[in-house]
């Protein structure tokens, strides 16, 4: 499924935004079956690390491979559909209903339309499928994002503050999703500023401070 069995291999990677370095000389290896906890203060570079792993940012220097695709070239376009990323801001279209939001992704990814309803039901939103995203609470939007992940069944999960805005039952759902993914030979990177909530899930943890991992 993944060449060399490695999900992530970052060598001396630096990322910058304009004139400022956000990440520098980051080295990170993630193997199948691993869930990595990434901790750090506000602005430490956690979200940038996730977007880099999601192939959404190109490194300024260094080399990196995610799911066998080189981050520095067009190979990364070929693995994107295998990555499940949830950022700290929901990426739903406010004017569209939850069902329409998910159906759009399902059509684009070639997923059977029936999966939309079943994933929304799985996250407990079956009754809110026809509600526009703009009238849904932040927690509901987060759940809808997890429904999108359930639907796409990615091998590599990238979750930014996975438990934020979620109630108890939804937290269990996220934890189950992470465990199932790594048990199936995938991997996960979980970013949080709060160690206690992610430590149980993570197989190992790294601290991010000043753009550097330790």
């Amino acid at each position: 499924m993944v060449e060399n069995g490695t999900i992530v291999s970052l060598q001396d990677i630096s990322v910058r935004a304009g004139a400022t370095h956000i990440l520098r000389n980051v080295i990170l290896n993630v193997q199948p079956g691993e869930a990595v906890g990434v901790f750090g203060a506000n602005g430490a570079g956690k979200t940038t690390l996730l977007r880099l792993l999601a192939t959404l940012l190109k490194p300024a220097s260094g080399s990196g491979v995610v799911l066998g695709a080189d981050l520095n070239n067009d190979e990364r376009y070929e693995v994107r559909h295998r990555i499940g990323y949830i950022g700290h801001v929901p990426g739903l279209y406010p004017e569209m209903t939850l069902d329409e939001n998910l159906s759009f992704i399902a059509t684009a990814m070639g997923i059977d339309g029936a999966a939309v309803a079943s994933s929304l039901a799985a996250v407990g939103l079956a009754g809110a499928a026809d509600r526009r995203a703009e009238v849904c609470s932040h927690g509901m939007q987060r759940r809808a994002e997890f429904a999108r992940i359930l639907m796409a069944q990615p091998e590599f999960l990238l979750l930014d503050e996975p438990h934020s805005a979620l109630d108890g039952s939804a937290v269990d759902l996220v934890d189950d999703l992470v465990r199932q993914t790594i048990e199936a030979g995938g991997a996960a990177v979980l970013v949080s500023h709060d160690r206690s909530r992610v430590d149980d899930l993570a197989t190992f943890s790294v601290e991010i401070a000043g753009g550097t991992l330790s």
């Binding site: 959404l56 376009y77 929901p90 739903l92 684009a108």
Partner: peptide
């Protein structure tokens, strides 16, 4: 928004 662009990109949609 950037978040919406990210979702589209990660759905594997060719730019």
């Amino acid at each position: 928004t950037q978040a919406q662009r990210d979702v589209v990109a990660l759905a594997g949609i060719d730019p």
